[in-house]
Design a protein around this nucleic acid. Structure first.
Lengths: 240, 240
DNA sequence: CTAGCACCTATAGCATTGCTATATGAAGGG
DNA sequence: CCCTTCATATAGCAATGCTATAGGTGCTAG
């Protein structure tokens, strides 16, 4: 059950850790399984990484480089806030595509003890937001904007990860993203692209009616009629 | 080192678990320490709770009742969205005051496997948001609003918990809270504040939707569908 | 009063976990 | 050729979650 024999043990340990982490559905991965899969014994692991956490740090460092790279691949659009939006999306995508890595990086919260990865990710965002502030696009200090955006971004990603794949609704991400970015930005008209003003009153009314119907069942329509009516109502309240 | 001797072992186990959890700074708590502090041996724990996770579930259930109680103590303000704001604040406060409990309840994310507590907390919010929707204060379906608010709320709380107490800046919470709530709300309100919350809200909402549809023709329904839809809408708004 | 029964608790121990004290092998410089 | 240094292995420790089994303890039925 051992891995490729030609790589040096250090690399095989990393590779084994990544592989086991990916197939373990969030359950803890034992050092024994790792060393076994790597075809190595325990002291080798501790010689190279000192610690189980050291090994995972190394794994996470690799993952974080992928993350940073994916954020850096984006060419600046010229509008810093649009860059921020794309970084948000990249963050979410990374979390969805590598949930195990993401959870090791962002999922283990300890009281009064913020993780390095969060700080590093914040620093990336901070760069863009500083430029946004220079351009006069922020109405709060960049430090505050960073924390709000980061908190929401992580919260949304964790929620999406925790949902069954089929139920995942990425509108949650777009909606929340635009909400927090709009709130920290001084540009008034940003929400326009998300919610066309012309349709909004229809949508609001449809949502209100839908809610009202669910709380009290009127007799004016038959069951089949009501079913179809709700279906159409639902279609109307979907802005997209 | 044992606890009060007069309580039944089950309660002593719970109490010991809570106490150790509170003083362990997020580090894992062993069943041995728990049973030792409770003055009980291992099988007693497994007899009552089946599992370590079972014990923690019981602990969390108690914590969740406190949480729910703190949310329920709030008297409705009459403005559902203000209630939502206060629930947000209560959520954050709970997380800050009992970080250990909060992390057990909301901190352990598993891919594709949402925690019960999140769903239950969502249900609480959902109630208020449904009423907001009935009153025409919502811009998006309540289900979407709930997820966005909840994700941001948890994200913010986790971030605040992970920060050293001195650096905690609660503006982060207020700012993000208002950002997401504003984003899902239609501040104008379709029928304004005149919309009563009762059986007649169906009629009011139907009338509002009718008016909105007449002023703008959405593309989500075909002509024949729209015709029938309007007919039914009319029928609903006629009678009580 | 006693026998049986259900419930609760204890003794002792298993398998797995992260980690290490110590020893062995190989590679290179004097 | 020896000696140092790095890398890996042997064997085992202490702590963990959990359990097979047996021993009380109190209640009800005869």
């Amino acid at each position: 059950m051992s891995l490729d024999i030609q790589l040096p043990p250090r690399e095989r340990l990393l590779q084994a850790a990544v592989e086991l982490l990916a197939n373990s559905d969030g359950a803890p991965v034992s050092t024994r399984k790792i060393t076994e899969l790597a075809g190595v014994t325990a002291p080798t692991l501790y010689h190279h990484f000192g610690d189980k956490e050291g090994l995972f740090d190394a794994v996470v460092a690799v993952g974080f480089e992928q993350y940073v790279a994916s954020e850096m691949d984006l060419e600046p659009t010229g509008k810093p806030l649009d860059d921020v939006r794309r970084m948000w999306d990249q963050h979410v995508r990374f979390g969805i595509e590598k949930p195990h890595l993401y959870l090791v990086m962002f999922g283990k919260v300890r009281p009064g003890n913020r993780s390095n990865r969060v700080s590093e990710a914040e620093a990336l965002l901070r760069g863009k937001l500083d430029r946004a502030a220079e351009a006069g696009h922020l109405n709060v200090p960049p430090a505050d904007a960073v924390r709000s955006i980061m908190a929401a971004n992580i919260g949304v990603t964790l929620m999406l990860i925790s949902e069954p794949e089929k139920e995942r609704n990425f509108e949650l991400s777009d909606m929340t993203r635009d909400a927090v970015i709009t709130a920290v930005s001084s540009e008034a008209g940003i929400a326009d692209s998300a919610t066309p003003v012309g349709a909004s009153s229809v949508v609001v009314a449809a949502i209100a009616l839908n809610a009202a119907l669910e709380s009290s069942n009127p007799q004016q329509l038959s069951n089949t009629e009501m079913k179809m009516f709700l279906e159409w109502l639902h279609r109307i309240s979907k802005t997209t």
